[in-house]
Structure formats: structure tokens, C-alpha cells
Design a protein around this nucleic acid. Structure first.
Length: 499
RNA sequence: GCCGCCAUCGUCUAAUGGUUAGGACAACACUCUUUCAAGGUGUAAAUCCGGGUUCGAUUCCCGGUGGCGGUACCA
């Protein structure tokens, strides 16, 4: 067995992969990335993607967080084949519902003498740890309770002496064959007899994860690099049971701009915050996949980096995954997001954008969804996130009050200005409403506009329509606004000038 | 402290024992233009350091430095 895991194969066969988030916080960007790579492996190499909830920490786990995890995984369209909600052959998929299983295996280890009760107090342990540290040694358990007699153990258990369960760690070298990093060696002497459970029905992470991965037939464990130091402990548990460990792959970390681990940052790493800021799931997926992975060279040509999930699956090659951590570059995310806002089918984009609009302008704007679509259409090239939309498009809903002086283009006179707006107004007055499209309007007024000077007509027109220094072009605005609102706004500008 | 991982433009990265070290984002300049965007064109910008192996190393090996992760009766 150990020989087998020492050779690193360059292929992935029938993978059963999983993500196992713990519901102790909102679903965050790091979990999403791990989920994405597991999902890609399952899809690319014809495997199964499993979702398990690791809620053994009763104090910190919350239902609200679990719901947030499921909700956001679905939002990202990272659907799982087995697990919570969808179920499967190796459930239950929530660790708090698997306590009987852990108890059974814990007893097995204790009965075989491969794990033991430890009655040392936290204070004793802490003292010893400090002592070892001060000697420059790796802090580990000294094995004090390793060889207690059966009588002693029973006595202490009878007296309800608090205890934990430790694995009897054999002294050896454990070599991990990591699919991304190659061979990594650990000396178990430096680890010692670590705690695998706080009680028969209170397993700790390293233990429950091994039992579950074994029971659920997980054969590839793909997770963040922060788990690399856990791996020898887990392998030791596999070996204690005589089970074959899965193949491990440790993904590079996502980093803050200061190169520290991103999931450690306080605030705004939660997926819900990215949603609130108006990022699209497609963009987040696309961005995340290029954190630690890339397409091969395409002989000097520009590589198309905007890829849908299906295209990513198509192009995906696990063995091109990077070793070094990658900084989360928000500028690139913004760019990708803008690309998706620009190219997504209008109906899809609208459904993403509507909540942002209704939040500011109320539900009643939904009575004219065509109007909303047109607004989105005229702004999709001007925004990076959906959260910018209500702000940038507000003049479609309410014409802001503006100063008359804003109507003047360069050094035109008041008479010229009035004449130009008046001309437009009169021209439109008798125009069929059907002609209020960008192309038609352009065709109709541009010849005259050229005579009067583009800026002299178009600038005041645009200001009259938008009330803003910056906005979409006048023809686009008029198409969206329609004839009567257009005339109203031009008249409004003329009024301002005549007062 | 101890254990481990990592190292190409500011950032994400491509490539190879021999290249003018390529692309993307960002930056900057120019252009388009009725504003703002978008678009187009262009500029600047990198192989951490020191040894070795080699005709040749950014690539392979060793050492250093630096960064990061872990060091829990969290996951």
C-alpha cells in the first residue's frame, strides 16, 4: 500500500471528490475556489462531486451558515451529485448525524490498542507545551497516559474524570504523494499522539474526516494548502484502520494583497458580500479558475480568458495547477464582471439586475419590464458591477434637478442654445412615436445637427434628457424614454432657460 | 521556536536546457467622440540572491534570503 501512494500518477480515474465545509461562518471565496476545482475534477474526469457538512464543532456551527453554503453553491451553479439535500448511497452527509459511526470506529481503535484515553488536564498540557517550546522542540504530547492500566482507566472513567482520546502514533516517516506538490515528508515523532476525539460521541476534525472520506469512498482529496500539515495525521488514522488513503492534492492559497491568507481577513470575503456588490456568478467562477490555474500557451496569440463553466470544463487540465499562492486581484474580477455584464443575454442579465433596481426604485418599476431591459441595455457597457446600475441609470426614473449653465456647450450663446433645443422640440412634436429609435432619430436629425455643430445640439439635448454631466448618448436615452417624456424634458430645459 | 510549502512584469500567468522571456488585468500615452463609458493603437514593466551541472540555465541540483501556511480538547 505505502508503495502505491509513493508513485504519483499523472492521470485521474473515476474520481469521487468532495467539499466538506464547516458551517462556522458564511460561505467564502476560498471555499468557493476549492469547490470549483473539485467540481471541475468531477466533471472533467467523469466522477462524482459530493457535499458534506462538517458540523462537529457544536459551539460554532450554525444552521444559518449551512443554508448560506448551500444557497451560494447553487448560485454559482456548482451542483453536487451526492450530499446534503440530494442524498446518496453513503449518507447521512451531515457529520452531526453520523455520531454512531464515529463511535463505532473510535471503539475499534481503542479496543485494538491503537488509540487510548488520556486524562491529562489542559493546564498540564499547556505547561508541558511551553516547556518544550522553550527547549526549541516541536510541542507534542509526551505520552503520559499511553500506558495506563485497564484498572486505572476504568477507575477514572467511573469517576467521570474528563478525558480525550488520542491516537497512538507510530514513530515513522510519512510520505505524502501530493498530486500538485509531489512528495512531502513528515516525521511523526514531531507530531506525537494527537487528539482524535473529545469523547466517544465527540470526534474531532482529523478523525471524522478520515472516517467519512473512507465511508463515502472518496478517492481524491482536493483542498487548500492549509491542510497539508493535517495530512500526515490523517494518513496515520487510515493506516491504523488498515485503510488505503485517498490521493491528496493541496491547492495553492488565495492571498490578500499583502500576501497573507485571504480567508483570514476580516469582513468581505463572504460570497454574499460579493453578490451584494453586484458580481455575477459566471464572473466569479471565471475569475476563480484563473487563480492558480491557466490555459496553455497559444503561440503568442491573445488567449480568450472569458470562459463559461462548460468551456472551462472542456479546457480543464488538473495537472496545470500552480503551486504558489495567488493574490486576489479585484481589478481583474471587475474586468471579468464587466465582460459578463456586456455579453450575457439580456434576459439573464435583467434577472440578475432587477433586485438592484427595485431596491432603490421600488417594486412598481417592474410593471414595465421592457423599459427596464432597455435601461440595462444602454448601461451594460458603462458598469463593472450591478451595484453601479441604480446610480448610473437613476435619471431614467427621476430627472435630477440641474443648473441651467450645464446646458451650455463650450462658448455658445443663450440664443443659440434656445434655438437649438427649440428646433429639436418642434421637430419631434409631430414625429410618430414609432420613429423613436436610436437609428431613426439619428437619421432624422443628424443632417441639421451637422449644420448647427454637433456639440451645440447634442450636448444640451443630452443634458436636458439626463440632467447630468455624464450619461449615455442622447439618442439612446430618447429611445428608452419615448416621445412624451423626451418632449417633457426638452420643454423643461427651455423653461429653465426662459426664466 | 519547531514542521512544512512556495518564488517569472505591480497582479494573474505562458514558455523553454538556446526566445527580442509571450499574453491578460491594472497603469500611462495617443486615438475615436456631444459627455461618460466602451472600442482601437501604442509605451513602460519580470525570471529573488549565491554557488554548482552544462558549450549554454530563468528552467536541473545545492545553499541562502524572503513570503506564506501549520503549530488547538477549530475546521
Amino acid at each position: 500500500m505505502s508503495e502505491k501512494i509513493k508513485t504519483i500518477s499523472k492521470e485521474i480515474k473515476n474520481p469521487r471528490v468532495r467539499i466538506a465545509p464547516s458551517p462556522t461562518g458564511y460561505f467564502h471565496i476560498g471555499t468557493a475556489r476549492t469547490a470549483l476545482f473539485n467540481y471541475l475534477v468531477a466533471r472533467k474526469y467523469n466522477g462524482k462531486f459530493i457535499l458534506r457538512i462538517e458540523d462537529t464543532d457544536k459551539e460554532r456551527s450554525k444552521k444559518e451558515y449551512e443554508e448560506d453554503i448551500l444557497e451560494n453553491l447553487k448560485w454559482l451553479k456548482l451542483f453536487w451529485d451526492e450530499g446534503i439535500e440530494v442524498d446518496g448511497p453513503y449518507g447521512p452527509y451531515r457529520q452531526s448525524e453520523r455520531l454512531d459511526i464515529y463511535e463505532k470506529y473510535l471503539k475499534e481503535l481503542i479496543n485494538k490498542g491503537l488509540a487510548y484515553y488520556c486524562f491529562c488536564t489542559v493546564e498540564e498540557l499547556e505547561y508541558k507545551r511551553q516547556e518544550m517550546m522553550s527547549r526549541g522542540e516541536a510541542p507534542r504530547y509526551d505520552g503520559h497516559c499511553r500506558n495506563l492500566s485497564q484498572e486505572e482507566i476504568e477507575e477514572k472513567l467511573k469517576n467521570k474524570t474528563p478525558y480525550v482520546i488520542r491516537l497512538k502514533m507510530p514513530e515513522k516517516e510519512i510520505i505524502i504523494s501530493d498530486l500538485i506538490r509531489g512528495k512531502v515528508k513528515f516525521n511523526t515523532k514531531l507530531i506525537g499522539d494527537f487528539i482524535i476525539a473529545k469523547g466517544l460521541r465527540n470526534p474531532l476534525y482529523n478523525f471524522s474526516v478520515v472516517v467519512d472520506d473512507y465511508e463515502m469512498h472518496i478517492n481524491y482529496v482536493i483542498r487548500g494548502e492549509e491542510h497539508l500539515p493535517n495530512t500526515p495525521r490523517q494518513i496515520a488514522i487510515y493506516e491504523a484502520f488498515g485503510w488505503e488513503p485517498p490521493i491528496f492534492a493541496h491547492l495553492p492559497l488565495i492571498l490578500n494583497p499583502d500576501r497573507s491568507k485571504m480567508s483570514k481577513r476580516f469582513g468581505d470575503v463572504a460570497m454574499k458580500d460579493f453578490r451584494k456588490k453586484g458580481y455575477l456568478p459566471e464572473a466569479i467562477i471565471n475569475f476563480l479558475v484563473f487563480l492558480g490555474w491557466h490555459l496553455p500557451e497559444k503561440n503568442g496569440e491573445t488567449i480568450n480568458e472569458i470562459l463559461t463553466l462548460d468551456e472551462i470544463i472542456e479546457q480543464f487540465d488538473f495537472f496545470r495547477i500552480q503551486k504558489a499562492g495567488a493574490i486576489f486581484n479585484i481589478d481583474k474580477l471587475d474586468w471579468i464582471n464587466a465582460e459578463y455584464i456586456e455579453r450575457l443575454p439580456i434576459d439573464e442579465l435583467t434577472s440578475y439586475a432587477v433586485p438592484f433596481l427595485t431596491e432603490k426604485f421600488g417594486e412598481n418599476i417592474l410593471t414595465d419590464i421592457e423599459f427596464i431591459k432597455k435601461i440595462i441595455e444602454t448601461h451594460r457597457q458603462r458598469i463593472k458591477t450591478l451595484a453601479e446600475l441604480p446610480e448610473i441609470a437613476s435619471y431614467f426614473f427621476i430627472l435630477p434637478d440641474y443648473d441651467v449653465s450645464l446646458l451650455y456647450w463650450q462658448n455658445m450663446t443663450k440664443d443659440e442654445l434656445i434655438s437649438n433645443l427649440d428646433f429639436i422640440y418642434k421637430l419631434f412634436l409631430n414625429l410618430d412615436n414609432k420613429l423613436f429609435t436610436k437609428q431613426q432619430l439619428e437619421a432624422i436629425i443628424m443632417p441639421e445637427v451637422e449644420k448647427r455643430g454637433r456639440g451645440n445640439v447634442l450636448w444640451p439635448l443630452r443634458v436636458a434628457l439626463s440632467g447630468s454631466k455624464n450619461s449615455a448618448g442622447p439618442f439612446e436615452i430618447m429611445e428608452v424614454l419615448g416621445k412624451s417624456e423626451t418632449l417633457k424634458r426638452i420643454a423643461n430645459a427651455l423653461n429653465k432657460l426662459n426664466n
